[in-house]
């Protein structure tokens, strides 16, 4: 299984490979992960920081376990996006793990949040749902799993910072309609199933306005207890 302890080792290997790159002969590509994942960069940015296309998410600094789960899901077709399904179809597990570690280890600065296009009332609803949830409707707060700083938790819970509203909204929509699924118990499907379209708009808009915190790194596993079971974050 995927072990968080592997992270520093992989980073060291990557660094060593970078040092070695200068000594490469001109006839071979650099023996680095950066060169190997160039196929990812037109959509996700050179260091996984994202691009101008609001539907392509930032990858940098997300927990490696989360990124690995997504790579596995894209490879098997469980998570559907044909350009990603196509690229990953014939890549082995250890390589996908190395890709996940690579982007988890990148720390380009978070972007300045763009000014929101929605009304103050909508933003207020978004903030309410994200920080407190709505117990009456069985909606937990985003922060209860994704962390008070929304930076995520190792190994499987992604941070929600640096993403644009259209991407978050599209993902919540996909969870609601069951086109995005994850290991059972599929916590995000349960949560999104309780959201209305207006909730999705509000939460997405508010999350996209969040400025970068002092420390955007995901917190260690077990930093706080999850309110309910989640297949992607086994205890």
């Amino acid at each position: 299984m995927f072990a968080r302890a592997a992270t520093p080792v992989a980073v060291i290997i990557t660094l060593a490979a970078f040092d070695g790159a200068a000594a490469q002969t001109a006839s071979q590509p650099p023996d680095t992960m950066a060169a190997r994942v160039e196929a990812c960069t037109p959509c996700h940015g050179n260091k996984g920081e994202g691009t101008s296309d609001v539907y392509f998410p930032r990858l940098a600094g997300k927990p490696a376990g989360y990124l690995y789960n997504q790579l596995l899901a894209f490879r098997s077709g469980r998570r559907k996006y044909p350009p990603m399904n196509y690229l990953l179809e014939f890549l082995p597990d250890p390589y996908l793990e190395a890709m996940a570690e690579y982007f988890a280890g990148q720390h380009p600065p978070l972007p300045q949040p763009a000014p929101s296009e929605v009304s103050k009332d909508v933003l207020a609803l978004g903030e309410q749902l994200a920080t407190s949830g709505d117990a009456g409707r069985n909606i937990p707060a985003c922060v209860s799993c994704h962390g008070p700083g929304l930076a995520g938790m190792q190994p499987g819970i992604p941070g929600l910072l640096g993403l644009r509203a259209p991407y978050i909204s599209a993902q919540l929509g996909a969870w609601r309609y069951g086109t995005r699924t994850a290991k059972s118990p599929d916590c995000m499907q349960q949560v999104a199933g309780h959201l209305t379209e207006a909730d999705v708009t509000a939460v997405s808009a508010w999350l996209a306005t969040r400025p970068a915190p002092a420390n955007p790194a995901p917190v260690p596993k077990g930093t706080y207890a999850l309110p309910f079971g989640c297949g992607s974050q086994p205890n």
């Binding site: 590509p29 060169a35 190997r36 994942v37 160039e38 196929a39 990812c40 960069t41 037109p42 959509c43 350009p83 690229l87 990953l88 014939f90 890549l91 082995p92 250890p94 390589y95 190395a98």
Partner: peptide, 16 residues
């Protein structure tokens, strides 16, 4: 991406 194989486990990819 070319396939990941025993002889080439970490292939280089062509960007779209």
């Amino acid at each position: 991406y070319p396939p990941g194989t025993k002889g080439n486990p970490m292939p280089y990819g062509m960007p779209p």
